[in-house]
Simulated scan of single mutants.
Amino acid sequence: MLYPTERANLAKITKNIYQRYGTNAAGGNISVRLNDEHIIMTPTLMSQNHLCDLSPYQILVVDMNEMIVEGDGRLTREINMHMACYRQNRKIGCVLHGHARESMVFASMGIDMPNLTEATQKFGEIPCLPFAPACSPELAEIVSEHVKQLDNDVLSKVMLLNKHGVLVLEESLNKANDMLERLEYNAYIAYKSMIFNKLGITNDTLHEEQAYAFNLEE
């Protein structure tokens, strides 16, 4: 079997993401660039049919022409969005798309997510991209154009897909999983904070213009 260690790790992390509400039975997909020839990727219907409990052989090995080299399953139609990211920036090593529970509040409303926690400051802005139907060439193009504008020196990038979910770009699968967790905690805090602000519950000693020396390292 090709890439047994990498495929086993992707299967393990995919299951963990599902169990921690990083995606749901409606979908989600994850890919990892291994080299200039191959990526590995979760199969279509991984959530609906398998509850993200996959064997390593169900993780597909795919070439850069979007052809399956090895694996038991079919390619998701969202392969076009993943490949658009890889083709746009060679530094991207993992593309993680999920329907994360807390972040879906902002994605479903079509609004940017406030970036409030120290652990997410490396993201910069957390934008909600313009709407396009899931799996469509239009959505892949919107994502590609956004990736083109990103700071290439900072790979920890996340974005919301309007009405659809989240997209995390990182240099490795483990880091992408880490960033999804950070995003979800920030989403929970952000919408609670918005409710507090509406209720007039504030800390008068803190001001938005105050400069904080955030730790942006790992």
Rank of each mutant, 00 (worst) to 15 (best):
G200Y: 10
C128N: 00
D112V: 04
I79T: 10
S108A: 12
N16D: 08
Q210V: 08
M113C: 11
M113E: 01
C52A: 15
R20T: 15
Q88L: 03
L183G: 03
D72R: 14
S108V: 06
A25G: 11
C94R: 00
Y57K: 13
E208K: 14
H207Y: 11
Y188C: 10
T14H: 10
E170V: 03
A84Q: 05
I195K: 12
G124I: 05
F131T: 05
Q121L: 05
H146E: 10
H99W: 04
E102F: 13
P133E: 11
E208G: 04
S108K: 09
A190E: 03
Y3G: 01
M67Q: 14
S55M: 11
N65W: 01
V166E: 08
V32P: 03
L161M: 13
F123Q: 03
Y191M: 12
Q19M: 11
D151Q: 07
N186H: 01
H82M: 00
E70A: 09
G110D: 07
N174Y: 08
L206H: 13
A134Y: 14
N197V: 04
N186T: 02
R7C: 05
L173Q: 07
R87Y: 09
M81S: 12
V61S: 01
P4L: 08
N9C: 09
I30F: 13
S193T: 15
I189T: 12
V168I: 15
A140S: 14
L167A: 03
C94D: 02
Y57I: 14
F196L: 15
R182A: 09
S144N: 08
L45H: 11
D151S: 07
L34C: 06
P43Y: 08
Q210H: 12
G71S: 02
T117F: 09
L183T: 02
N24T: 06
N152E: 12
C85F: 10
G73D: 06
Q19Y: 09
D153N: 15
Q121V: 08
R182N: 13
P127L: 08
P130F: 06
E138S: 12
H97I: 05
H82V: 00
R74L: 13
G22E: 02
R182Q: 12
I13H: 06
G22P: 00
R7P: 08
Y188W: 10
M179T: 09
V62W: 05
Y3K: 01
F131C: 00
H207Q: 13
G71R: 04
L155H: 00
M194Y: 11
H50Y: 14
C94F: 02
N89V: 01
T23A: 01
G110R: 03
M64R: 15
K192G: 09
A140C: 02
M46I: 08
E171Y: 07
G22S: 04
T44H: 10
C128Q: 01
I201A: 08
H97Y: 08
N174L: 09
S193I: 00
T202H: 11
H50E: 05
L180H: 02
I30V: 14
E145G: 07
Q48T: 10
E138K: 14
Q48G: 03
C85M: 07
M104I: 05
L169A: 03
E66T: 09
P127Q: 07
